[in-house]
Computed example of a mutant assay.
Amino acid sequence: MTSDPNRIRRLLTMLPAAALLGACGKGSGQQADVSVAGSVSAPVLASASVPDLSKVKLVLGDQVKLLRTKAEAAGVLEGIPYQIEWASFQGAAPLFEAVVSGDVDTAMAADTPALAAAAGGARVKVVAASVSSPTGVAILVPPDSPIRTVADLKGRNVIVSSARGSVAHYLLFGALREAGLKTDDVNTGFLLPSDAAVAFSSGKIEAWATFGSYQASAEIRGARVLRDGVGINSGIGVIAASDAALADVGKRAALADVLRRLALSNTWANAHPKEYGDVFQRLTGLPADVAKLAISRDRPQLRAVDAEIVRQLQLVADTFFEAKLFPKRVDASQLVDASLFQPA
């Protein structure tokens, strides 16, 4: 896709109308007549059907400011008619807790924590997806560790970030199974990434399953990758929204608009890694080499939730359920709302 900034600006000018039509038209019984040239002609929507976005505030859940840095670097949120508040978390587990409590409207996460939240009863829907490199999740060991293979983890202590059902937990489960081991062949503990990072760097952790900038930081300091996610993890990331937010007409319209803007920010960031990296480093405070490594593995394009995404989500959900790591089976087809987002 082109990285022409003029094209992005042109697309941005079209977003509010497109988002309102897509979000408000669902189930309203109203028809939109769109001309060939792309301008909207009457009848469009009854005025009562179009919410006043100036009164809407979205609280967008983020992890390590990944969404926010792209959006701010690309400038895609300039001139929005609604309010945005960012809420950044260390991991997906506390992020989904905030969604469940109603403090946050959306969650950006990998596939497994979104599925884990749904299995735990969270009332959320996956509204958009992306695919990144599975190298962005790994099982790490200290550089001088005698552990050379996953099979060597038998009887060892392994820390997983950040909770049961995380993308790192799925990697550990898959890697153990691949090596012919059972989950109870290792002693598994769970820690938030920042706490685990301190323990790992001080030599208190034999092996650590982690992801993203935490993984990159440890690798820069010499940690050895025992097994990354290639061949195990799907690399699917999702943006999920609470059922409550989706049921609110104003928030639904604003979310439809912001998703299209975030899609443009991904396109821009992938085409401008240096500029994006500078903003990412400034907002996160990470060292330059850590920031560069982390974002080199995070080059997704936001995409609609299609049948292939649903199939892969179902595969992950069934794997965890059959392993008794989920309390109930998740029907991925019922977890998605594919009506809200279609890429420009």
Rank of each mutant, 00 (worst) to 15 (best):
I147F: 01
V131E: 14
A114M: 02
A163S: 09
L172G: 00
L171E: 07
G155S: 11
L172S: 00
L171P: 01
F190C: 13
L115K: 05
V150E: 04
A119M: 03
I139F: 02
S166N: 04
G180P: 09
A175N: 06
H169V: 02
Y170M: 11
S133L: 02
V124R: 07
D105N: 04
L153D: 13
L181D: 01
A116L: 03
V141Y: 05
A163T: 11
A151L: 11
V186G: 08
A179L: 05
T135Y: 09
G189H: 06
V126G: 06
A119N: 08
R164P: 05
T135Q: 11
R123M: 02
P113V: 04
L176I: 00
P146K: 14
A163Y: 10
R156F: 08
N157G: 14
I139Y: 00
D195W: 09
G136C: 07
F173Y: 03
D111K: 09
D111R: 06
R148P: 07
V141D: 06
D144N: 14
P142G: 07
V160D: 15
A119F: 05
L192M: 10
V124Y: 08
V141A: 03
A199I: 04
A151W: 08
A109W: 09
L172T: 03
S166F: 00
G155M: 15
R123Y: 00
D184H: 15
A119G: 04
V167H: 12
L192T: 13
E178T: 06
A196N: 06
T112Q: 02
T135S: 12
P143A: 07
A151D: 05
G174W: 00
A199P: 06
D184L: 12
A122P: 04
V186N: 05
K154R: 14
V198W: 08
K154W: 05
A168C: 09
S130C: 09
A151F: 10
P113I: 03
S161G: 07
Y170A: 15
A129I: 14
D144L: 13
T188L: 08
K182D: 10
N187L: 12
K182I: 00
S133Y: 03
A175H: 01
D184C: 11
G189N: 05
V131I: 03
V137C: 08
L172M: 03
A116M: 12
A128F: 12
A110N: 10
V150T: 05
S130W: 10
A197S: 15
G120L: 00
A117E: 11
S166H: 04
S162M: 05
V150D: 06
A138I: 04
V131N: 15
A118E: 07
G155N: 11
V127W: 10
V141F: 07
L192D: 13
G120Q: 02
V141P: 03
S132Y: 13
R177W: 04
L153C: 14
M108E: 02
Y170K: 09
A107C: 00
